[in-house]
Nucleic acid binder design. Structure first.
Length: 696
DNA sequence: CGGTTGCACTTTTTT
DNA sequence: AGTGCAACCG
């Protein structure tokens, strides 16, 4: 087998340069993943390294999975974890390292991973403890300030030292208490996974050397999106041979808001002297017209490396820019167009993607697709593991796994309702903290606590319940078995079945949780995995993909629709001043979106858009002017303003679904006011401009 | 304690 | 419009 088959000269060079530092500057669509995968295959095939001596870091779990699949194809090997390099995201790799060696820096083997919600609730708690009201500073803002401090590797002391403004001083104070509370619950947040790994590698030289000599080759994808903790980890792990290969594109750096610093890629040659540099500039994805428009946009940025992306293919269809009256019309026109293409057999649904700036923009599109009976899937959005019912069950599992997890306990102490209110909960937690026993043991011994009455009985019985579950877990740690036992034990189904239309959906979600869990060997594995899991990666079914531009990074589609090209949306309204760094990031985002398209790119903007429940009017995006070249403004027969209601196909006898009231049938239409008789018998008159009615 | 009601805030992007 | 939260009552 030849591991350089089907590669161009530059790609071959990237694969064959196997010793010393290598920087691959890879433009959009230049075969970056292919090159990387071939490089790994080459290292293995030539026995330059054993699979387990290779560390490959990807940006998402999905990318890791894809790479693993491609690699097993290339090597004609089973997709077997044992015959695979270490592959995963920085966070995933760090969890693995910390599970193995975290005890060296005092971490429990069964630490829990706190997500954004957990962090938020701890921040609130810390603020309460410090007597800081929600009005003085928003917990959200503090929480994200703490995160960015951590991303710059600042500990509470550093944050306090560097604090110049009142808000920063406040943040530093909260940060410090937050850390204490988190430690008390045996939890690590996302940022800690990186920070604690840095701490491990920096303070334990013998551990560091062990890993350094283990990994003979390190490869890092999307290097422009590494933050400073990740950069440190890289520096510590790279061995004396300096066999490090990074791939990236500063033009596609769109994560600076979470600490990513693309100067890491610009400084690679300084950090690793003698580095070879390879530029992949030939694009194999998009037509000339698309590339030209995209390049025109990105070239307006000042801070960027200089390169050219080019294609050997023709210019293809011009990029289209369409105007719509409002988001309903914009969505309608897209759905209609896609529907027609599918109907005549020109394309399949999965050939299309619709990209938008914010998740909230998916709604009008969904409605239009439902109406035209075009299958679609939303990628990202509300993550499966963020759903309330799932989080409840997972909180039970986490407490079972880590009996000190006070955060999870606080969540489920009164779920299902069992008479433990805020006062009793606070009293109990306060007492537990002084007792030197974990939460489950404390519940069992609640008789000797100051908690009285109904709450005492409830906690005691909950504690006994957990004891029984612990015994079961000892015998059988199969996660789906445990989940079913938990559900049975707390009668969760009865709690869920509350008569609301959402109940059925919740029940379904829980059964998917049970089946998801079945593939894991242990509860611990399952919990680690889902903590870092991103939103459902969309199965390979035939449907149109709807997602944010961020979520589309690394993907490609024959036909791409980019919606909401309006000032205030893209660029986002939080970015005001022209010429600043944030505007440049918005422009990169625009570039990333455009370069997802292979054959056709359709861009649209709406004069009017519903935002925050209010109608707003936006100017066309300033990026539109930059596109130039092969674009065409399609004149549209724009219907009169009040005419858009026909697009929603709301007519008498049409069945609709409301997230609030369930399903029902329209019995009267009067302009924008629609009267619906819901299946539960109630009749409601709704304004279609606001009521989220989905045709079914 | 627990449910209901009314008010303010929301929407950047995610491991 | 939806959500989360504080304030109130049974």
């Amino acid at each position: 087998m030849q591991t350089t088959d089907g590669l161009n000269d530059v790609q071959k060079q990237a694969v064959l340069t196997t010793s010393g530092p290598l920087l691959i500057l890879a433009g959009a669509g230049s075969g970056k993943t292919k090159t990387l995968t071939h490089r790994i295959a080459h290292l293995i095939a030539t026995k330059a390294a054993w699979p387990e001596q290779i560390l490959a870091v990807t940006f998402t779990n999905k990318a890791a999975r894809e790479m693993r699949e491609r690699l097993s194809d290339l090597l004609n090997q089973q997709n077997d974890r044992n015959f695979m390099p270490w592959m995963g995201t920085f966070h995933g790799i760090c969890v693995r390292l910390l599970k193995i060696d975290g005890s060296e820096i005092g971490l429990a083997k069964n630490f829990v991973i706190f997500d954004e919600d957990d962090r938020q609730s701890l921040v609130k708690q810390a603020m309460k403890e410090l007597g800081i009201s929600d009005k003085q500073a928003k917990p959200r803002a503090i929480s994200s300030a703490i995160s960015s401090a951590k991303n710059q590797m600042q500990y509470p002391e550093d944050a306090a030292r560097n604090a110049n403004y009142p808000f920063e001083r406040l943040t530093a104070e909260v940060y410090s208490v937050y850390e204490r509370l988190k430690k008390q619950a045996y939890g690590l947040d996302f940022d800690d996974l990186l920070l604690e790994t840095v701490r491990l590698l920096s303070t334990k030289p013998s551990i560091r050397d062990k890993w350094r000599s283990k990994f003979k080759h390190i490869l890092i994808d999307e290097y422009q999106d590494t933050n400073s903790a990740q950069y440190q980890i890289v520096k510590y792990l790279v061995g004396d041979d300096h066999n490090i290969c990074v791939v990236g594109d500063d033009w596609q750096s769109i994560y600076s808001w979470r600490g990513a610093d693309f100067t890491n890629i610009l400084n690679f040659e300084r950090d690793f002297p003698g580095a070879n540099v390879v530029k992949l500039e030939q694009n194999y994805r998009s037509t000339g017209a698309i590339l030209e428009a995209a390049q025109n946009v990105i070239s307006k940025n000042i801070t960027r490396t200089d390169k050219k992306i080019w294609t050997a293919e023709g210019s293809g269809e011009p990029v289209q820019i369409n105007q719509a009256y409002d988001e309903t019309e914009e969505s309608y026109l897209i759905a209609q167009r896609i529907s027609t293409h599918i109907a005549v057999g020109a394309r399949q649904a999965k050939d299309f993607a619709v990209l938008y700036r914010t998740n909230a923009m998916s709604y009008s599109l969904e409605r239009a697709f439902l109406q035209f009976h075009v299958p679609y899937k939303i990628i990202g959005g509300v993550r499966f593991y963020d759903r309330r019912e799932i989080k409840d069950i997972v909180a039970y599992l986490r407490l079972l796994h880590q009996p000190n997890d006070r955060v999870s306990f606080s969540r489920i102490a009164n779920i299902p309702t069992r008479g433990v209110g805020a006062t009793s909960l606070a009293k109990f937690l306060n007492w537990q903290a002084s007792q030197n026993v974990d939460v489950i043991s404390a519940m069992v011994q609640v008789e000797s606590s100051p908690v009285t009455g109904r709450a005492r009985a409830a906690l005691s019985s909950l504690g006994e319940g957990f004891r029984k579950l612990q015994v079961l877990l000892e015998k059988n740690s199969n996660p789906s078995f445990i989940i079913e036992e938990v559900i049975k034990h707390i009668n969760y189904y009865d709690f869920i079945r509350d008569g609301t239309p959402q109940a059925e959906e919740r029940l379904e979600n829980i059964s998917s949780l049970v089946s998801d869990a079945a593939s894991f060997a242990s509860l611990a594995d399952f919990l680690d995995e889902i903590a870092l899991m991103s939103s459902a990666d969309g199965s390979a079914d035939d449907s149109v993909a709807l997602m944010t531009i961020h979520a589309a990074k690394g993907l490609e589609f024959p036909v791409v629709f980019m919606v909401g090209l309006e000032d205030g949306i893209l660029p986002h309204s939080r970015v005001h001043e022209a010429g600043n760094e944030e505007l440049e990031e918005e422009r990169r985002l625009c570039y990333v979106g455009m370069t997802r398209a292979r054959e056709e790119l359709h861009i649209s903007y709406a004069t009017s858009r519903l935002q925050f429940g209010q109608r707003g009017y936006n100017e066309p995006s300033r990026f539109l002017e930059d596109m130039g070249g092969h674009i065409s403004q399609e004149p549209l027969s724009i219907p009169e303003r009040d005419d858009t209601s026909h697009m929603m196909s709301l007519e008498v006898s049409q069945r609709v679904k409301s997230s609030q009231f369930g399903e029902g049938e329209i019995i009267d239409v009067d302009g924008l006011a629609v009267t619906v008789r819901f299946d539960n018998g109630s009749i409601k008159k709704l304004n279609t401009e606001y009521a989220r009615l989905m045709p079914i």
